[in-house]
Design a protein around this nucleic acid. Sequence first.
DNA 1: TAGATTGTTAATCGATTAACAATC
DNA 2: TAGATTGTTAATCGATTAACAATC
Lengths: 211, 211
Amino acid sequence: MRKRIPTATTKRLPLYHEYISRMEAEGSKWVSSFMIANALGLTPSTIRQDLKHFETIESSSFGYSTKSLKKVLENALGVTTGANMVLVGVGRLGMAIVHHKKFREKGFVIKGLFDVNEDLIGKRICNVPIYPLGRLPEIVKKKRITIGIVTTPVESAQYVTDLLVDANIKGIWNFVPINLRVPPNVAIENVNLCPSLFLLAFRIKLLEEMP
Amino acid sequence: MRKRIPTATTKRLPLYHEYISRMEAEGSKWVSSFMIANALGLTPSTIRQDLKHFETIESSSFGYSTKSLKKVLENALGVTTGANMVLVGVGRLGMAIVHHKKFREKGFVIKGLFDVNEDLIGKRICNVPIYPLGRLPEIVKKKRITIGIVTTPVESAQYVTDLLVDANIKGIWNFVPINLRVPPNVAIENVNLCPSLFLLAFRIKLLEEMP
DNA sequence: TAGATTGTTAATCGATTAACAATC
DNA sequence: TAGATTGTTAATCGATTAACAATC
């Protein structure tokens, strides 16, 4: 990749990757911008503008080579390297994430869980041990953790984030519906379930009002 | 609200609502565009442009009235009315969603669960019964369901979505990482966990490359 | 009133789309 | 080659920011 990649493009890369992976699994050797656009609800123009940022994609009059496109996307996304992660807040959502196989398959491995609940500490979920919060700095350092998953209640989310940041984590995957404060050298990605549901309700309302 | 509300604004409304709810709970009578902007990492200008679309918000030189702002947002989002929902695909993620109290508190109630797993059918989770997929049209009609939550494996997601659409559902809350096809009169909101994680990995990479 | 914030206009910025020559 | 798709430029569209008079 050459120039700065626009954020709008950035957000689509994981979607392209998902689609390309599926097409490759189905045995497709080539995918065109038309196919991708159609599958993802975008225009071919947008796809081409986005992929322009990556020089090493092999293309022809059939479209882009599935293999090279997948490779380039995985490189760009850092999927090839994966990451070691910890998860703080072992509620039901936290447990669902730990059990999710796909992350591990892609190299994103949860190495430790943290909670304040005394009853949980020492147990294991999917063979991942649950530690007390106090051991977070030690474990993060020892296991070379780069991503912290935050699935705590709202009240403790910022506190936990500060702990993670102090432990030199590089990115926060936040499932708590607040805007966590992190220094500029730490990446953050928010997954907001409640707002997402409200947004759906809002869209339904819009559709009903003006059909 | 008067004119068409821009989609960019639409996506921020749930965040405003979340923040205002918290401020109201803390006893704030007024919130300014500066406060909201600061809390959510936006500019005051953006906040004011967004809220301009809603006429009934009471404002003063202290900012916006928390009470009226919350009310307007809840009205706009359709949060006041809530919705009856069904969930298809009772895996761990599905279960985590069923257990999530917040949705129910806000009036978004899951009235039925559906799965193909014979062992699950007839059981209850959080007092919500699990039905066989075949009974979906009947239950959706009887219980006046408007939102369908899709937490199935990728392979069955489109099939399940078609079932829901045929049963006259109004919105799909999709947790499966594919672009589901729905007719234009059905709203859809996607929650993509894997792409979200990859996006985080990508941002970490960007930060490392050019700090 | 005085101080602060909104409401609003205009300018800037970025993202999307259209179109077509270059390429495979 | 012929047909189809890319790569790229230019035009359009929408979103964000800045600035300041109007308002409370």
